[in-house]
Computed example of a mutant assay.
Amino acid sequence: MLAHIEKVESGYRATYERHLNHPVEEVWSYLTDNEKLPKWFSELRVDELRKGGVIKFDMGDGTFDELSILELKINSVFEFSWWADTVRFELSQESGGSSLRLIENIHTITDHTPKDLAGWHVCLDVIEALLDGRAIERKEEWKIWYERYGNEIEKVTLQ
């Protein structure tokens, strides 16, 4: 399911919703544990898991950008800066598993925005597959979602 993308006062907001057949603690470990994090987002490493802490993004050229952890509630909320934007994961227990919501607050739509949106979509698919003991072909999935998010961004920006 596509993220819901909307125009808001501060720019745009993309909200992804997933029900996972796994407990909150297990899902949380994929978001914050440096042993599991690279399995779905190889460039990210949590340096200091605390509000005001740091996530490092490997730029692939030997340098790292530091992203600030803006809010942290263990097994519930993990929000960090994403350069000019923010990314927020919200987890809650549900019958038979958990609810995972990812919210990206986007300051300005750029040519890169559909790439990021497709990337987050596939990241969530990969987390779910890992939890389920499955594998997915990331590049092929990304291509499909990139086109769809490009179309969605066009719709939202034309409103």
Rank of each mutant, 00 (worst) to 15 (best):
A84K: 12
P38R: 03
L67K: 02
V8Q: 10
N21V: 03
E48T: 13
F80L: 05
E35Y: 08
V8D: 13
Y30C: 11
D85F: 10
E90W: 00
L72V: 09
K36N: 09
G11Y: 07
F41K: 08
F41D: 10
V77S: 03
I5K: 00
F57W: 05
F80Q: 00
E25N: 04
S68Q: 15
E9P: 06
R13E: 14
D47M: 05
L49S: 01
S10M: 08
V24A: 01
F78P: 00
A14N: 12
N75E: 11
T86D: 14
I74V: 15
V8T: 14
K56V: 13
V46D: 03
W40M: 09
N21A: 07
P38K: 04
K51L: 10
F57Q: 03
R50G: 07
W83M: 12
D61V: 13
A84Y: 14
P23R: 01
E43V: 09
G52Y: 06
G60V: 12
S10Q: 09
D33G: 02
F78N: 03
S10T: 13
H22I: 02
K36M: 08
N34F: 04
R50T: 12
E25T: 04
W82E: 09
E48H: 03
V24K: 00
L31Y: 08
S68L: 15
V54R: 12
E79R: 15
H22E: 02
L20T: 02
R13Q: 15
G62Y: 08
L70R: 15
L67H: 09
E6R: 07
F80W: 09
T86V: 13
V46F: 13
W40F: 10
E79S: 15
L20R: 00
F89D: 04
Y30S: 11
H19E: 12
R13V: 15
E66N: 15
A84M: 10
A14H: 05
W40Y: 11
T32H: 10
